[in-house]
Computed example of a mutant assay.
Amino acid sequence: MSSAARQPDRIETAPAFTAADVTALTERLAGQDTAAMLADLLLGELRGRVALVSSFGTESAVLLDLVASIDKSVPLIFINTQKMFGETLAYGDALVEQFGFTDLRVFRPDTHQLAARDAKGMRWGYDPDGCCDLRKVEPLARALAPFDAWISGRKGFQAGRAGLPRFELDAGRLKINPLADWDKARIDAQFAARELPRHPLEAQGYASIGCQPCTSQVQPGEDPRAGRWRHWDKTECGIHNQPVF
């Protein structure tokens, strides 16, 4: 065959989802129960296209239980920043075992980038944004590359997250926040009703748990996320405030 007749290879660059798709989903599933909404998507149009991302934090068991009750084969992504509490790692292992997830995918920071940008492992102390980018944002980008959509455990009652929608557009990928409209009382009621295990550090005053160096105990009356990046002008690690387009 001549070179003139050969068709060039094509690389698909169109986003998996658009703003119009997000609007349509929001309208179609408005008012639907959380479990029913998840079942509709996980067993329908998003089957094989979506992953669940979990930090194995203090409230993670609720969402893990909801998803596992529908489809235990949904890929479960955990970003091990290599700065995690040992208790978090053990708790995560226990949750995966209890709920029966069959496809756990653990991602870590790139070793070459760590050597170049955080050789002493102390970047969190002088550049927490850069540390989060290196240890969370970049690994999650790699983890999500095969997927058109992902499920987040964010809640609207958490500091800085008021008005959180169920569906968002994140760089052409659909982001789903099933617990967006759940309040703390509902979360606690679900823990009790389903007899879900609590994170072992919660009883010690850790209301929101991330990496060990940047997580502190929360005092009575403080916002649950007050213990994250204390004394820094920072409330998010970076994976939830990426450009939306």
Rank of each mutant, 00 (worst) to 15 (best):
Q158A: 15
A159V: 10
A159K: 14
A162D: 11
L164A: 03
P165H: 04
E168R: 02
L169G: 06
D170E: 13
A171N: 14
A171M: 03
G172I: 01
L174G: 04
L174H: 10
N177V: 02
N177C: 04
L179E: 02
A180K: 09
A180M: 03
W182T: 05
W182G: 10
D183M: 01
I187Q: 14
D188W: 08
F191E: 08
F191S: 10
F191H: 07
A193N: 08
A193M: 06
R194P: 09
P197A: 09
H199C: 02
H199Q: 01
L201C: 05
L201I: 00
L201S: 05
E202W: 04
A203C: 02
A203W: 02
Q204N: 09
Q204I: 00
G205E: 08
Y206A: 02
S208R: 09
S208Y: 04
I209Y: 07
G210K: 12
G210Y: 05
Q212I: 04
Q212N: 10
P213G: 04
S216F: 04
S216V: 15
Q219H: 12
G221Q: 10
E222Y: 01
A226K: 11
A226R: 11
G227W: 02
W229K: 14
W229Q: 05
R230T: 03
R230A: 08
R230V: 10
W232T: 08
K234E: 08
K234Q: 02
K234T: 07
